[in-house]
Simulated assay, not measured.
Amino acid sequence: MIDKNELLTNITILLKLANDRNTQQGVKVYIGAIEKISQAKSQEEIFIYWDKLKHALVGIEAHGYLTNKEFEIVKNIRSMG
Rank of each mutant, 00 (worst) to 15 (best):
Q25L: 13
E35V: 12
Y49A: 01
I31M: 10
D20K: 14
Q25V: 10
H55Q: 11
K41W: 02
E61S: 15
Y30G: 01
Q24E: 13
R78C: 01
A62H: 11
N10T: 00
G81R: 14
Q43M: 08
I77Y: 04
Q43H: 05
F71N: 14
N10W: 01
Y30E: 01
I37R: 02
K41D: 13
I37H: 04
L57H: 00
K69E: 15
M80S: 08
N19A: 09
Q24D: 12
G59N: 11
I37K: 04
A56S: 15
I11G: 02
G64M: 07
M80R: 03
Y49T: 00
G26S: 08
K69W: 04
I37Y: 05
S38K: 11
Q24S: 14
N22P: 00
A62C: 07
E44H: 09
N19W: 02
K52W: 05
N68K: 14
F71Y: 13
S38W: 03
K28D: 14
Q39T: 09
Q39G: 05
I46S: 05
Y65M: 06
A56V: 01
E61R: 15
N22D: 09
F47E: 12
V58S: 06
G32S: 15
T9F: 12
S79V: 00
L7I: 10
R21C: 02
I73K: 02
V58F: 12
H63G: 10
S38I: 01
D20V: 06
S79R: 11
L66N: 10
I73C: 02
K28H: 07
I11H: 02
N5A: 10
R78S: 07
M80K: 09
K54F: 06
V29S: 06
L8R: 05
I77S: 03
K75T: 13
V74L: 09
E44S: 12
D3L: 12
E6C: 05
L8V: 01
E6P: 00
K28N: 13
I77Q: 04
G64S: 07
A56K: 14
Q25K: 04
V74C: 09
K36C: 03
E61N: 14
V58I: 14
G64N: 07
N10M: 07
K41I: 08
I2Q: 12
V29F: 04
D51K: 11
Y65S: 11
G64R: 07
Q25R: 04
G26V: 02
N68M: 08
Y49L: 03
L14G: 06
A62G: 07
K36G: 01
D20E: 15
I11Q: 03
Y65F: 13
F71D: 12
T12G: 09
L53Q: 00
G81M: 08
E61A: 14
N5C: 03
Q43F: 01
F47N: 11
G26Y: 04
T67W: 08
K69I: 12
K16V: 10
A33L: 06
I34E: 06
V27R: 08
E45M: 13
K28Q: 12
E70M: 03
M1L: 10
A56Q: 15
Y49V: 00
I46V: 15
D3G: 09
V58P: 00
Q43L: 09
Q43P: 01
A62K: 15
S42R: 10
I37T: 06
A33C: 09
K54D: 11
E61W: 09
K28P: 00
Q25S: 09
I31Y: 07
I31H: 05
R78A: 07
T67G: 06
R78I: 05
Q24A: 12
Y49D: 05
K4Q: 14
T23Q: 08
Q43R: 02
